[in-house]
Simulated assay, not measured.
Amino acid sequence: MTQPHDILCIGSVLWDIIGRAPSHMRQGSDVPGRITRLPGGVALNIAMTLARFGLRPALLTAVGQDAEGHELITACRELGLITEHAYRSEDLPTDSYMAVEGANGLIAAIADAHSLEAAGDKILRPLEDGTLASAAAPYEGYIALDGNLTQRLLENIAHSPLFARADLRVAPASPGKAERLLPFLAYGRAVLYVNLEEAGLLCQTSFDSSADAAVALVARGAGRALVTDGGNSASDATQDGVITQTPPSVLVTRVTGAGDTFMAAHIAAETTGADHDEALARALTAAANYVSGGHAK
């Protein structure tokens, strides 16, 4: 029996292996710290935060049938996430992400999302076969989509009639994958969530402020653009204009997952009817709580 849900989260669901040190680090640093393994991935980070806000996210992703995959699915269910629509491959291993963080932020990271990429459009079958939607009855709710999918699949999604009625919210998995979102500028059907660097990559330039970046993305075809810049201002632009706010000042203790938290909190706020100003304020507060070591709330 299909469980009810409030939003679909499409993209990477994997194990995060994060090494954190309390000292400043540089290339070649060898310092004491802590190494943790937690459920992660952009789609999963978004889903976990949405669940903390009382929503019921369903995951469309690829997870292996290996021991790591079974453990990950169990962890997701314990977090209140709906996993019955995930593609469970017998041939592909469960994906993972490894990062090193110091007191001066992210030092380096490697994302191994090859299984998600190899699964391709198999993860979208529930939107085609009538399980969640079909070509005759496209999905009409919120969808959070991440850029860990292949360029080809993202382009197909950007113009696919299966997504024509959805409220589509899209984020890159990292600056290195930002240009995968270019199809969503061409078709203008999505709300983009990016940081200042990612906005520059999409516009093939650099920006001095989040407001300039958000306005430029809309001018290039985005239906709406939200741009963050760490502890500096964040902006939300549409064809009607741009609003800008400054996040709360906090002591940063972690950075991996902050953008995903911002996006999830923003979506959650808008599902309750918050206007653009209120939704941006709530998202910035949630992200500040997260990077300071607390839970988004």
Score class of each variant (00 low, 15 high):
5 H>R: 12
6 D>P: 09
16 D>P: 02
19 G>H: 02
23 S>E: 15
32 P>A: 12
34 R>S: 12
35 I>R: 11
36 T>D: 13
40 G>P: 02
48 M>K: 11
50 L>Q: 12
51 A>G: 04
52 R>P: 00
60 L>D: 00
61 T>I: 05
65 Q>R: 15
69 G>W: 06
71 E>F: 10
71 E>N: 11
75 A>S: 12
79 L>N: 14
80 G>D: 08
80 G>Y: 04
83 T>W: 08
86 A>D: 06
87 Y>Q: 04
87 Y>I: 05
92 L>H: 01
96 S>P: 00
104 N>A: 10
105 G>T: 13
108 A>F: 11
114 H>W: 06
120 G>T: 03
126 P>N: 06
127 L>V: 04
131 T>P: 01
132 L>T: 02
133 A>K: 02
138 P>F: 06
140 E>Q: 14
142 Y>V: 12
143 I>V: 15
147 G>I: 08
149 L>P: 03
150 T>V: 05
151 Q>E: 15
153 L>R: 03
156 N>S: 13
158 A>P: 02
161 P>D: 12
162 L>H: 09
162 L>P: 00
169 R>T: 09
170 V>T: 06
182 L>F: 07
187 Y>N: 08
187 Y>G: 01
188 G>E: 10
190 A>C: 10
201 L>P: 06
201 L>Y: 15
210 S>F: 07
214 A>K: 04
215 V>L: 13
216 A>W: 01
218 V>A: 01
222 A>D: 05
225 A>W: 01
231 G>L: 08
233 S>G: 10
233 S>I: 00
242 V>W: 00
247 P>E: 11
252 V>L: 11
253 T>S: 13
254 R>K: 15
260 D>T: 09
263 M>C: 09
267 I>H: 04
285 T>E: 14
286 A>W: 09
289 N>A: 15
290 Y>W: 14
292 S>Q: 14
292 S>T: 10
296 A>P: 14
